[in-house]
Design a protein around this nucleic acid. Structure first.
Length: 223
DNA sequence: ACCCAGGGTCATA
DNA sequence: TATGACCATGGG
């Protein structure tokens, strides 16, 4: 039901206002944050990013040259710190290979969106959601990001089952939005996360939810 | 004490 | 293709 996602956007924007995502000073900080926030609360990521900044490590070359153990210590508050140190280096190695070590944002000009997406997916530690987050928030490409909140929302609205594939859900949401509009995609994903934090967690809290009327929660869901 | 967070990889069937 | 184990910290 693609057309409904536009209504979701309007409703959530009215309820919550603009979210101004992604919270970061530079495109590289977006990319780094996209990896650090994997299955991790953003509040923990902020501390890790603060440590990277404090040690002057929020640069491609600095991350590549930083001793593994020190990089890991910077990442500790974000959890999975050994894994994420490896993934961060893989990202930076990739940026360097693409000739973007000095200006990570210039990655946006190194091919079309489909090609960029595939090259990002080839980087160890970057899956679909992380790749799309980078495309949308760091490179300003009109790509819809889909996550666990989006899946839960789609399910509770009665528009899909809980196990819908990433690509299917992404296509469904994207089809309901104005083609090529990067701004609306940035906001919608941010708004869905905000909704999820407040109302869609493990125990759904319907009272006060902006989508309560449209929501199929409690009614039989067709699939 | 338990559950979850703005996921992804790898081994197994 | 589709599950399950694993990765680790911090807050509710």
């Amino acid at each position: 039901m693609p057309e409904n996602w536009s209504v979701v956007y309007q409703t959530l924007l009215e309820a919550f206002g603009p979210q101004h995502w992604w919270p970061a000073d530079t495109p590289l900080e977006v990319m780094v944050g996209a990896i650090l926030t994997q299955n991790t609360a953003w509040r923990n990521v902020e501390q890790a990013i603060a440590r990277l900044k404090a040690s002057g490590s929020l640069e491609v070359r600095a991350i590549l040259e930083r001793p593994a153990e020190q990089l890991e210590q910077d990442l500790r508050p974000a959890g999975y710190f050994r894994v994420k140190a490896v993934r961060l280096r893989a990202l930076c190695r990739f940026l360097e290979q693409q000739g973007c070590a000095e200006a990570p944002a210039s990655l946006a000009e190194k091919g079309d969106t489909a090609s960029l997406r595939q090259r990002l997916l080839d980087v160890h530690g970057i899956g679909e959601e992380t790749a799309d987050s980078i495309l949308l928030y760091a490179l300003e490409k009109p790509v819809m990001v889909v996550d666990a909140y989006t899946r839960r929302l789609s399910q509770r609205m009665g528009w899909s089952g809980p196990r819908i594939a990433y690509a299917s859900l992404q296509k469904d949401v994207d089809a309901g939005l104005p083609p090529g509009d990067t701004g609306i995609r940035k906001e919608l994903h941010a708004l869905i996360v905000q909704l999820g934090k407040e109302f869609c967690r493990a125990r759904p809290r319907c009272p006060g939810c902006p989508l309560q009327k449209q929501c199929a929660h409690g009614r039989p869901v067709s699939h």
